[in-house]
Simulated assay, not measured.
Amino acid sequence: MRVLGIESSCDETGVAIYDSEQGLMAHQLYSQVKMHAEFGGVVPELASRDHIRKLTPMIRSVFTEAGLSMGEVDAVAYTAGPGLVGALMVGAALGRSLAVGWNIPAIGVHHMEGHLLAPMLEDEPPEYPFVALLVSGGHTMLVDVSAPGCYQILGETLDDAAGEAFDKTAKMMGLPYPGGPLLSQLAEQGRAGVFEFPRPMVDRPGMDFSFSGLKTAVRVEIARQAVDEQVPEQTQADIAHAFQQAVIDTLAIKCRRALRETGHKTLVVAGGVSANKSLREQLQQMVKKERAQVFYARPEFCTDNGAMIAYAGWVRLQAGHQSPLAINIKARWPLDELEPMNV
């Protein structure tokens, strides 16, 4: 089966074609970062309009790249949620329309299930069951994955997601949007041990996360270190290093706890923050001590992309799932509300 995947949940437009025999045939991604940068964050209306402009040309281009004629697929998968309502509607309306025009099935995909399954696109995919850490700008959660579609939430953030905490902390430090990746780069120049920030909620049972207190601690330290409202460059790097280490330690501690409580020996890490080099290094050390293993998607599939939607759509369609003709998108959509799959 060959599936066209369309991702338009926020500020990245992704299109891909996945073939169950040949694997990923083609994929393209367009980021709206430059457009939103002058506003310091994503403007939903502008995001929706840009998806309208980009999607059709990108779909044509992906078919050409794959060596296929337009419509030479067996199904269309599109992101149905969670995400920005207008952005979701653009991809869902176009995906549903193409499916009707080509007389093929369509399937609305859960955005986070796409991220969770993205490592399955690799040459050596993980085997079920496993613990998944989904860590991005909008979500941070630990999930017990017993089979495709069988998800039990072990813990999730009570306030900001990890990626959101990175971006907001970067903004406090005066870094341009999107600040998260820039803060990580700055942290590489920082010195260990100069500052120490709290590891939120690691001293209590459970696997939930909270990063609001950590942000407050950073804000207080920035104010304390400022001279004439400016923080020295090396001090900024030291603060960035301490902040990043606090987030990474927290994620690693909760992942270790999840592996021990479930008894699983496989950890899957997905979402934009999973591309963080320091996070990967620390998780690798942790799973080695736990005699476990960790799997990631390749860096280009850590952020939002059409390949993960195409693959997740294929898995759902293989299980006999299809979306009705009426378009149903969800700005909020708990992962554990997904219908289980028998595949």
Rank of each mutant, 00 (worst) to 15 (best):
V269D: 07
V269R: 11
V269F: 08
V269H: 10
V269Q: 10
A270E: 13
A270D: 10
G271R: 07
V273P: 02
S274P: 11
S274W: 06
S274H: 07
K277D: 15
K277Q: 15
S278T: 14
L279Q: 00
L279K: 00
R280S: 06
R280K: 07
R280I: 03
E281A: 11
E281L: 10
Q282E: 13
L283R: 07
Q284N: 15
Q284C: 13
Q285V: 10
V287M: 04
V287K: 04
K289S: 13
R291P: 15
R291D: 13
A292R: 03
Q293S: 14
V294T: 12
V294A: 06
V294W: 08
F295R: 10
F295Q: 12
Y296G: 02
Y296M: 00
R298P: 15
R298C: 13
R298W: 14
R298E: 14
P299A: 01
E300R: 10
F301G: 09
F301W: 13
C302V: 02
C302H: 04
C302K: 04
T303W: 07
T303P: 05
T303D: 09
D304I: 00
D304L: 01
N305A: 04
N305I: 02
G306L: 12
G306H: 12
G306Y: 14
A307Y: 09
M308N: 00
M308W: 01
M308L: 01
Y311V: 11
A312E: 08
A312Q: 08
W314V: 13
V315S: 09
V315H: 05
R316V: 00
R316A: 00
L317D: 08
L317E: 10
L317V: 12
L317G: 08
L317K: 11
Q318E: 11
A319C: 02
A319Q: 00
A319P: 06
H321P: 15
H321L: 11
Q322M: 07
Q322Y: 06
P324M: 04
P324F: 04
L325H: 15
L325Y: 15
I327P: 01
I327S: 02
I329P: 05
I329T: 11
I329L: 06
I329E: 11
K330C: 09
K330E: 12
A331N: 06
A331K: 08
A331M: 11
R332V: 02
R332G: 03
W333V: 00
W333L: 02
P334C: 00
L335K: 01
D336E: 08
D336H: 04
D336K: 04
E337C: 06
E337M: 09
E337F: 10
E337V: 11
L338H: 05
E339D: 15
E339W: 09
E339K: 06
P340K: 03
P340A: 03
P340E: 12
P340T: 06
